[in-house]
Simulated assay, not measured.
Amino acid sequence: MPAQTIEVLDELIADFQDLPESDRLELLLEFSDNLPEPPERYAGHEDEMEQVTECQTPLFLAVEYSDEEDPIVTLIISAPPEAPTTRGFAGVLIEGLSGQRASEILTVPDDIPNRLGLTNALTPLRLRGMSALLGRIKRNITTHLS
């Protein structure tokens, strides 16, 4: 049985796959421009966020939860403007995953960068950082649920 996926994320993946490979990086950069700034309570307080150390860019993550048994997850990601591909991937994850149930996010395949068709556009190091960000999100959720 294939892994379930989240409809919004599936639509984003389809948007990337519908483009010629040469245009996918440009779409990723559009997500970079649209990455929301962290809420005021995190501004200048990256120490209260989890650093994604596998990423070569200073990337910080906070995951917030609703009070339900299967909580709705809110993702907050801080990435510097000089790291547009990292910001772009963070933007894809926020748009595709934030506001979804924890149980749904845990079913998301780990190879999202590959599914976006970015393997030829980005270095292996960047792809590893992107996969690490998704891994951190899932690990945070698993820890929260246990």
Rank of each mutant, 00 (worst) to 15 (best):
D15V: 07
S32V: 01
T119R: 10
K138G: 12
E46I: 10
I112F: 10
T53L: 08
G135P: 00
L75A: 07
S66W: 08
E37M: 09
K138R: 14
Q56E: 12
L12I: 15
E68I: 09
I13N: 05
E95H: 10
L106H: 08
L59W: 00
D18I: 02
I137W: 04
D18S: 14
E37G: 01
S66L: 04
D67P: 11
I6V: 14
P124V: 10
P81R: 11
V92Y: 03
D23M: 13
E64D: 13
S32W: 02
I141T: 05
A14F: 11
F31Y: 15
F31M: 08
D111I: 09
L127D: 03
V73L: 01
I94M: 11
V8F: 00
F89W: 06
E82A: 14
K138E: 09
E50L: 14
F89R: 05
L19K: 12
Q4K: 13
L25V: 07
G135V: 01
R128E: 12
I137Y: 02
G99M: 06
A14Q: 13
T86I: 08
S103W: 06
M1G: 15
N140A: 15
A14M: 09
R126H: 10
M49F: 03
P71G: 08
R126W: 08
A3R: 15
A3H: 13
T53W: 00
L25K: 12
P71A: 06
R101E: 14
L27D: 03
L93W: 00
E68Q: 14
G91I: 10
G99S: 08
R41K: 15
E30F: 05
T53P: 00
T5S: 15
L59H: 00
T5M: 12
